[in-house]
Amino acid sequence: MADYKEIITRYKDLPGGIIEAYHAIQKEQSYLPEEAIIAAAEVFEIPVKDAYGVATFYSMFSVKSRGKNVIRICESAPCHIAGAADVVAALEKELGIKMGETTPDGKFALEFTECVGQCQATPVITINGKPYGDITADKIPAILAEYK
């Protein structure tokens, strides 16, 4: 689990900081988990009910897990060299979408990411934050099957 408090604290002194903080968390998690809302209440020193009120007021935020599995592919140099491009092609083929898109059923999204600190097992992908190393094109269908 991400350290929500640390992320949120970065926005503490900005005007409208809680909204920025929610954006930052949603970028990581694709939604605002309860723990993140509670952490935001603590950091901004407001009641949880108000942090929740903000989180549900704007339609760009979601407080429910969208049921979406966010697949991120590392495009930093080590993974790139290890053949990340082949993995991208395999994922795009398997899911029928391009990078940056979401499948029509909303179940999978493909995104690039920076180094995730798993360079001992390049190339690396993460699904909902969980890393998978030493990926080759033929491993993809089995991994995706876990999430279908």
Binding site: P47, K49, F57
Partner: peptide, 9 residues
Amino acid sequence: VNALGLENR
């Protein structure tokens, strides 16, 4: 107590 609040809009 802050038990009650608003949801959505």
